[in-house]
Design a protein around this nucleic acid. Structure first.
Lengths: 340, 340
DNA sequence: GACTGGCACTCGTTACAGTCGAGTGCCAGG
DNA sequence: CCTGGCACTCGACTGTAACGAGTGCCAGTC
């Protein structure tokens, strides 16, 4: 049951070699490449134990060992230090993110950067509306019965929505409405707005009630219910590295999963403060993605978190390096947001 | 040189069978499945001619024939009628597109619909800014030295951009600026704005010149230079149908190409009025995409075209069906836009 | 002159047998 | 508790043979 230090060292060596070579690793090769100070036979005994405990397995009888999901988990939790970033990576991050011109730009640059550095699939969530506050609401008359509602959040996100009014509304009334909604909603967290929006209808003179009601409906829909969350994705081509050896042959289910926003959100959206979440293989809740690992974390200005980002790759991935990169990118993005 | 009717019929039969079965088609199988009224031997002679002319080829000596890019081209140009849509498809299109709530929504629904109907990779360009007119410009003060510039185009597109001002600007001046830019720019085609924007600087009193200059720069950048064009993509999972038999083995180059906005734009952005453009295999200008075929067309309200959409798939695709679907979807989207 | 049936030939696919070697488990001895 | 040695397993690779789909060509027929 107890794994002594050497057995752990053996497991670490197996993980490292397997990640590097992508081939099952045997006892002989192990002692050659690592200074374990014991013979292959001893290593074999340790391996037998590790296998019994479920940390490694043999693809077939006469092959070397391969880490299991459980093995990776142990490796990540107890056997690896987070690698410091190389200066080159550090520079790449800085270079990539300066000159971003608006939120869209920041998100796009970030997701590409992440994909490039980790050589895996990268996912970045736009700052969550639920975690943002209203900075400004704008009502732009398009015609007498149509308004464009534009909402600007403190995180830089801008959402817009066309509103079909039940009756023509004169320009002055639009001005009034604009002042009212801004007065009541500016500065409030979006997650707190629903009751306030409901209340707005009462605040308005009777003639404007129907208009305000439609407006309120759209506000609620836009801000709370509908495509509330947005996601950017990059690096799907990286799935084809390792020539389909990872992902046992078919990219299909993975590509399918990556097309579902809901799935992506689930992957990186559920963030707790300052943790890096690592899901390995079967630990993933999404069936299509068992067989992959996901490293995700939250980002935001200062200590608050406004969204998540992360990468997805084969379970056989360089965890220490990936974790370091994901964290570093999240930190930089946070700083960038803080500047606005 | 001259291909008589029967040889054309043979070519058509080969294309149809190959598209359906994905296997090289032999002379015997051909006469069995199609009423050609001649014997396999005769068909073989015709095949020999077709091969000599470069319309079909043999993967290896003892295999059946497979159409070449040139063969598909002839098939598309002269041997196929555009299939009428099935009622089910027609219904699917209608059902999918009603209830779209804003432009983002329309584009996303469209791209998914196209991917689903054609079972291929779908690409939809947002209405091109260059082909849109300014409907409204909004300047929203964020702080004394920061404005949010929001542009609403007549096609429904909304672009925003943060503007860092060189000096604090009082609210009244913002109002003036807003009135001025709207007065001068509303209704103009975006492609015609650059000189007008330049001229704006002169229109303003000296104290506001620096502010107006920055604003003008940002306007030009946002409206003309930068991410002017946007693209939506869906259905990449469909690349894995046919188990990598299409795309001779590697999805890599294709996925890479699909991540480049520039490439996608090139694919579907170059639209002439009411043509459906079909690029087969080597006809593609993008190296990574030789080996695929692209069917694209323009869409827009009425007869004008504001953007392109299309699908990408294996050269071995159902051209008549795909063409019909792409056209139908483009038409529906155009109608939808016309309603706004 | 165009079509057809027949036939020899090609060549990829499949099946099978045999060899090789990496890697293991186990055991006896230090 | 570790080690060297040894028998064993089993996938990967190689070579051979049989199979069969499909062809090209030719002589014969309408």
């Amino acid at each position: 049951m107890g794994l002594d230090d050497r057995k752990l060292a053996v497991l670490r060596a197996i993980v490292e070699d397997y990640v590097a070579t992508q081939e099952p690793v045997g006892s002989k090769a192990l002692v050659e490449r690592h200074q374990l100070g014991v013979s292959p036979a001893t290593v074999r005994n340790d391996m037998a134990v590790l296998e019994e405990e479920g940390y490694i397995r043999q693809p077939h009888t006469s092959a070397g060992r391969v880490p299991t999901d459980r093995g990776y988990r142990l490796f990540v939790d107890r056997l690896s230090r987070v690698k410091p970033l190389s200066p080159a990576e550090r520079r790449a991050i800085e270079r990539f993110l300066v000159g971003a011109v608006d939120l869209d730009d920041v998100v796009h640059r970030t997701v590409r950067l992440l994909a490039q550095l980790t050589r895996q699939v990268a996912v970045v969530q736009y700052p969550s509306l639920a975690r943002s506050s209203v900075r400004h609401l704008e009502l732009v008359p398009i015609s007498t019965t149509r308004l464009m509602l534009v909402m600007i959040a403190d995180t830089g996100r801008v959402e817009q929505r066309l509103v079909e009014l039940p009756a023509p509304v004169p320009a002055d009334d639009v001005t009034d409405l604009r002042r009212l909604v801004n007065e009541k909603l500016c500065g409030t967290r979006l997650s707190d707005t629903p009751p306030l929006v409901q209340a707005l209808v009462e605040e308005v003179r009777v003639g404007l009630r129907p208009t305000m009601t439609t407006l309120a409906t759209v506000l609620l829909e836009t801000l709370v219910e509908r495509h509330e969350e947005r996601i950017a994705l990059a690096g799907t081509a990286n799935l084809t590295r390792g020539g389909l050896l990872d992902f046992h042959g078919s990219l299909r289910p993975i590509l399918e999963a990556l097309e579902e926003e809901v799935v992506l959100l689930k992957l990186i959206g559920e963030v707790e403060p300052s943790t890096t979440r690592i899901r390995i293989g079967d630990e993933n809740e999404i069936d299509n993605l068992r067989g992959t690992s996901v490293v995700s974390t939250g980002y935001g200005p200062g200590a608050t978190i406004v969204g998540g980002l992360g990468v997805l790759g084969p379970t056989r991935m360089d965890y220490p390096g990936t974790i370091a990169t994901v964290r570093a990118v999240a930190r930089y993005v946070g700083e960038l947001l803080a500047q606005n």
